[in-house]
Design a protein around this nucleic acid. Sequence first.
DNA 1: GCGACAG
DNA 2: ATCTTGTCGC
Length: 215
Amino acid sequence: MIPHEWPKTESEAVAIQERLRPLVRIEEPPPIRTAAGLDVAYRDADEIVAAVTVLDVTTLSVVDSAVVRGMAEFPYVPGLFAFREAPPLLAALGELSVRPDVLVCDGQGLAHPRRFGLACHLGVLADLPAIGVGKTAMGRYEPPGEERGEWSPLRLDDDVVGRALRTQSGVKPVFVSVGHRCTLDAACDLVLRLSPEYRLPETTRTADHLGRTHP
DNA sequence: GCGACAG
DNA sequence: ATCTTGTCGC
């Protein structure tokens, strides 16, 4: 984990994103045997619950997990999502006894106004391959073909920043983008492997369930 | 000024 | 994210 700080103002937050953004690497990831799902549930006021589950990619069984409760230290601001959710998620990652091969984040990676979404932030700070899987798009896209596995480019400004990927035939696509140390092809392959039955990858589903049911 | 805006 | 009724499907 590289040293990091958390901002008090929005302009400080933007400055941190600009400073960390050059650290993002797009490359073929090592073979992936385990994948971590990360999600945050919101309780009363600013009380939040960060949940991480580690799944065996072959069997999709949970092999490790961690939950951290805390208070949100930053308001929800589109584009500054990570400053709200990353601190408890990093704490939860630190409590794992297994180091996952990749982080599957609930949100965007490079599909971000400054090309540094939550998945980039977590990947860079944890120094792990990371991808973003969003339920809504950050950018423009044409609907992909209706069959599972079909996809279309996700564009922001004039860049292709990710893909709208159909994980289930006839169901709204998810929005996949690179976070860190991964390629877009590898990210989409992984998301399809993790989503044999439902729209969202099992990593996200198990983490969401864990955070939501934790006392 | 108006709309858009990850979770 | 979360607030919420009924409804469709496995």
